[in-house]
Amino acid sequence: MSTGDKVFVADRISKVYTMGDVKVHALRDISFSIESGEYAAIMGPSGSGKSTLMHIMGCLDRPTSGSLYLRGKDVSSLTDGELAEIRNAEIGFVFQNFNLLPNISILENVELPMVYAGVPPKERRERAVRALEMVGLGSRLHHKPSEVSGGQRQRASIARAVVNRPAIVLADEPTGNLDSATGAEIMELFDELNAKGNTIILVTHEREVAEHASRIIHILDGEIARMEIRKTNGRGTTQWEAVEV
């Protein structure tokens, strides 16, 4: 299958959980693709399957059936070790609860993906410092995560997500644990990152967050319910237009 300049392609992926005798279809034959440099949002209420989709897109989990292409490479049947390498090189995670290691400094947290990538310590440090400066944490390098604010923690985790120059940045409810003002700042940061060419996928249940993206994919009951793309008219107002699934 040719994926062209699409950074991510999902081809009829399903995820079935078996609980005793009951089979739960978390995802049913989902197909979609993400262009390189795209800013997309996956929206849906809790239980819709969007978390499962995020885990599969993030190579934390494998689909039960269907294929998944990341930068043209089929990743749907890789071993655990190969998936770890893909996560390391191609995926940057931003979590709702930051998921920074509490016992090490922010700088060391940002270095962590490069530690597992085998980047030499000196280069690692330089890149981590640059990433932190980019997110505005240049003066907080040696603080522990518990010593900075929630917004700063999320900035640190964004720095960690982009430091290995991944194919996609996957942000799972990135503003869920933040007040609205801080949340807005974080969303601005994502906008900036996208403007610099990073492919960003937001997973959220908030319309306001999703509207930062240029495309919204709605998930309901494990299926893509509908899709919307942003249209800006001549007067600069934004409209959302439904497109064919």
């Binding site: 390498e85 995670f93 290691l101 962590l112």
Partner: peptide, 10 residues
Amino acid sequence: GIRKAVGAKR
């Protein structure tokens, strides 16, 4: 979990 998410292998 965090270490695995950022690329730590088994």
